[in-house]
Amino acid sequence: MSSIRYAEFKSRPYYGVLEPASALEHLIVAEGEGAHAVMELVAKAPAGFTSQATLLYAEGPYSPDNGNTEALRELGFARFHTSATAAAAVPRLEGALERLKMSTEVYLTGSESALSIFVKACTDAGLDYQGLQTEHRGSLARRVQCVHCKGITENVTTQPATCAHCGLLLLVRDHYSRRIGAFQGVNINAEDPSDIPAKEEMFR
């Protein structure tokens, strides 16, 4: 994943590559394909890294049988918890953030949607987003907030997209709010509601 493409739009988040930091403890939160970013992180890290690390892993809905969970378990994390999805991991993440000690490095990886959720949980807990390590793996599906009804639609892959709450057809913009953890959706055919553009798969 090139981070340069992401950086072009100034409010859109861009992601890097997880690098082991010299910290007393490590809190790693991963979703889905992010499992591979965690494996690569551990491979780069000095011996003993995982014994100072907590891993929260969201496997993906309905626990896909892809071996990721078992492979991660074998890395020997001091604490290792699994959950079904990024959203389901949030209560445990919030608990971990509440107990976070000084000199803990936070690593987040997974799909665009999962990263939105994880970063928001961290900033809501008072962490500075600039101190978080992030790496994108997997889907580019977006969380989109309808600017009209304020509802958030998960896993948006099309342009335009239908708001799951008020039903308006939304142009999915690149404009992104970290506070909300979502891209902005604005009614695409407000000027002429009879003009209904076809949906295209844009965010896979």
Binding site: K10, S11, S177
Partner: peptide, 16 residues
């Protein structure tokens, strides 16, 4: 939208 842009820095809220 203030509700969407609140919390953004100078470059972020001017992104569009």
């Amino acid at each position: 939208s203030l509700d969407f842009d609140i919390g953004m820095n100078f470059f972020e809220w001017h992104a569009p």
